[in-house]
Design a protein around this nucleic acid. Structure first.
Lengths: 196, 196
DNA sequence: GTCTATATTAAGATAGAC
DNA sequence: GTCTATCTTAATATAGAC
């Protein structure tokens, strides 16, 4: 890790730039400049831009899986694990207010481009969804676990979209508070869970 | 309206293409082809692409204002007006599942581009927000009206984002059902409104 | 108002020297 | 592995004929 390869540094900068500027708006030259190498060197390591995108998605998938595994093996119960998910909005609020959610904005862009990598990128959502569904099931909500997981994903997405549009931290914090209240309502009174 | 000017036809096709393909991914040539004129003719009517974008946003603002006014002068009360807003997700589901929300996806793209038109485009959100806040205030929720309006906007955004990522109509319909239940909960028991 | 032709810039991608 | 140089394509935008 002390001496990352040029290939890894390209991947790292591409990951950041695709998030900050979007996939299409990021040029080979931008990546090369960020790494401090020539354009030709970038194409030596990754022949096409699509190849970089695929590698970036794989990197994000691996990091997401590792994050979820850390949360899974953590000492807290399923409710606290779901709270960890909700609190990403707070932990990453600075970047979210500038660039939105890295998963949602990538999927939205790829959907508009009708890019074949959309199904690859949407696996990021699926990772979160399945993990969240596992937590809801562990709370005794096995039947609605998948629906609740998608619902929470959608709520997070909407918060990120509006927070980045208005660069509004107060809104983001208020919505996170409401999400925690929603979760509390689910864990304490299961019969009312579909109301929210 | 029977004989729209070339300028209006350019605007109409640009509006559609910016929604379907995104702003940056739409070229002058695409607009010209859709209208059935030459590229040079497009630039005769709109000198720059940014000028087209500004005109498209103005068009959307005018149409949104007209829509909200129709709902406002309609016979139903504030709760039914909010239901009209929620039901756009159903009415426009085919396009939403393909291209997402026209407001949210435009604002997300412009935020990534750091485009100066973002503040112009975000006025679309503000139109909806202020109108929704008026309805919530009319329901006797004057104090929380602004927060509730933003909350509902965020919920709609999240639904549109996931619906377009997964092209999933069942998810969209289920989430609309949950939104209606949320609204019912607010109108019937105000003390629990911030829970959802 | 509409067209063709063109200037200019930038991007993705390739070839070959070192 | 890294660079410079170049090919090719496509995009915004302009100029000028009709």
């Amino acid at each position: 890790m002390k001496h990352p390869s040029t290939r890894d540094r390209i991947l790292e900068e591409a990951d950041r730039l695709f998030y900050e500027r979007g996939y299409e708006h990021t040029a080979f030259a931008d990546i090369a400049e960020a790494v401090g190498i020539s354009r030709g060197n970038v194409t030596f390591h990754y022949q096409t831009k699509d190849a970089i995108l695929d590698a970036v998605i794989d990197l994000r998938l691996a990091r997401t899986a590792a994050l979820l595994e850390r949360w899974e093996t953590g000492g807290e119960g399923p409710a606290d694990r779901i709270r960890s998910f909700i609190d990403i909005l707070i932990a990453n609020r600075a970047k979210i207010m500038l660039h939105g959610c890295p998963v949602g904005t990538l999927c939205s862009e790829l959907a508009k481009l009708e890019h074949h990598a959309l199904s690859h990128a949407s696996a990021l959502f699926t990772l979160f969804q399945e993990w969240l569904a596992t937590q809801f099931a562990a709370l005794g909500l096995k039947k609605e676990a998948g629906t609740l997981a998608l619902h929470l994903l959608a709520r997070s997405q909407g918060i990120a979209t509006l927070a980045s549009t208005f660069h509004d931290e107060a809104f983001l914090r208020e919505e996170v508070r409401i999400l925690h209240a929603w979760l509390d309502g689910i864990t304490s009174s299961p019969s009312r869970r579909t109301r929210a």
